[in-house]
């Protein structure tokens, strides 16, 4: 307990993140009402008047929609970051092992991919292959690749300068083996920290995409589309615009704090 109390950022982040994950998982088996069930007679009811958090313009239960939205947002973001982190880290450590011209070429390409905001690549993709969860995941993952490639290249390069790597080279180990045996395990902490932080960014991006109608199609509830629907009722039913945004902000803040906390915890030398 005192371990957690001495690390408030980490603890708050952990609590928020675990709560979010728990809500998302519970939504798979239970929600107060089916999130797509419409009750027009109970439309636009404020929180506590009908259900815990009120109802939307079709009389759907907002609390249930938010719960399922947590699962949709988290699962989409997690998949996107998993793809981006795997590919990006792969590129980073391979380039760190090969170096030379490959390094500058690959990094230049990363700069270029990084120059296209995921919202725009999702729009491009959406025009050609249609919008939906797949498009959102690909668009976010593509943006994550250069992020991880750059960071992990830097981290891997540092490992390559260590004495134990020099020793391994001297013993005649090939570069692929050194990457697997020495580099990857030693940058694992940084990968975990980045995955946590980038998950927050992915949730923000996913919310933006589904706000524009580029995420999961209706009737699947997403936080972004709930906000987009709420726009029409800002005067009548402001809670419809407040609650999904609060959910997004809390989720992102929790993940960011957890990431910051993990960084301090896993790498005590780097506390800048």
């Amino acid at each position: 307990m005192s371990f957690l109390l001495r690390r408030p950022i980490f603890s708050i982040g952990l609590v928020i993140t675990l709560t979010l994950v728990a809500i998302a998982l519970v939504s798979l088996v239970w929600t107060p009402l089916p999130p797509t069930k419409m009750q027009i007679v109970h439309r636009l009811k404020p929180p506590m008047a009908q259900g815990l958090l009120g109802t939307d313009q079709f009389g759907r239960d907002v609390a249930s929609m938010l719960m399922v939205g947590a699962w949709n947002s988290l699962s989409t973001s997690l998949l996107a970051v998993a793809i981006g982190a795997t590919l990006g880290t792969g590129v980073g450590v391979i380039v760190a092992a090969i170096r030379g011209l490959t390094e500058s070429v690959v990094m230049r390409i990363c700069d270029i991919i990084f120059a296209v905001p995921p919202i725009l690549s999702a729009m491009l993709l959406g025009a050609f292959i249609g919008s939906g969860r797949f498009t959102a995941i690909i668009a976010i993952a593509v943006f994550m690749v250069p992020v991880f490639a750059r960071l992990m290249l830097g981290a891997a390069q540092q490992i390559w300068t260590r004495d134990y790597v020099t020793a391994a080279i001297g013993m005649g180990r090939n570069r692929a083996k050194i990457t697997i045996v020495h580099v990857l395990p030693n940058i694992a902490n940084q990968i975990i920290v980045q995955v946590t932080i980038q998950l927050g960014l992915a949730i923000l991006t996913e919310a933006g995409l589904s706000f524009l109608g580029l995420g999961m199609p209706p009737p699947a509830p997403t936080w972004g589309r709930m906000l987009s629907d709420a726009q029409t009722f800002l005067g009548q039913a402001p809670w419809l615009a407040l609650l999904p945004g609060l959910a997004i902000a809390l989720a992102v803040m929790g993940l960011n704090m957890l990431g910051d906390g993990l960084r301090d915890l896993l790498d005590p030398r780097d506390q800048s």
Binding site: G200, L204, A207, G208, F211, L227, A230, Q231, L234, A241, L242, P244, G245, I248, A249, L250, V252, M253, N256
Partner: peptide, 11 residues
């Protein structure tokens, strides 16, 4: 850092 700009807009 955690709030989406478009939500701030709505608020």
């Amino acid at each position: 850092i955690a709030v989406p700009a478009f939500w701030v807009g709505l608020l």
